[in-house]
Amino acid sequence: MKIFIDPPNSLILFDLVERFGHEPLSVMATIQERVDNLEIDMPPMNVTLTDVKNGLKYAGIEVPSGIRGRLAVWGPLIDQAEAAIIMEDAPYSFGCVGCHRTNLLVDFLVRKRKLPTIEIDYPRTEEDARNMVIRVKEFLEGLK
C-alpha cells in the first residue's frame, strides 16, 4: 500500500515503511524528480509559478506562497495515500518541511481523508524508540 509519512522527508519513517513491504510516499522522490527534470525552470527545487497556483487546491489565496508551494509538492502525495503515519513533536533534525503552518495543514489534510493512520510521538528514550518501531511494525503488517 502507499503510505504517506509525516514529516514527509523523514528517512527513518521512509525506511520503516519500505522494510515492512509498503511504498513510502515521501517528498524525497518528488523533489528528486523535479531536480532531475532537464527542463528545470526554477532551481533549486523547480517549484514554479504554476505549482504555487496548483497549491490553491489545498490552501486559499490569502495563504503565503511558501505554504502553497510546499502543498503543491506533497498535497498530491496525500491525495494518493492509502494509509499514513504521523509523528508528533518531531525535532526539525528528524525531518521537517521548514514551515510550521505547512506542517499543521499537512497533518490536517491527512486526518481529513480518514485513512488508516497511526499517530505516534517522537521517542525521547531508547525504550520509547523500540516501542515506536513495534507499533509502526504492527500497524504496517496489519495493512497487508
Binding site: D41, M42, P43, P44, M45, V47, T48, L49, D51, V52, P64, S65, G66, I67, R68, G69, R70, V73, G98, C99
Partner: peptide, 12 residues
C-alpha cells in the same frame, strides 16, 4: 530567507 524555493522565486 524562508519560502523562496517553494514560492518559485529563488531563481528570480
Amino acid at each position: 530567507s524562508c519560502g523562496t524555493e517553494y514560492s518559485g522565486v529563488q531563481y528570480e
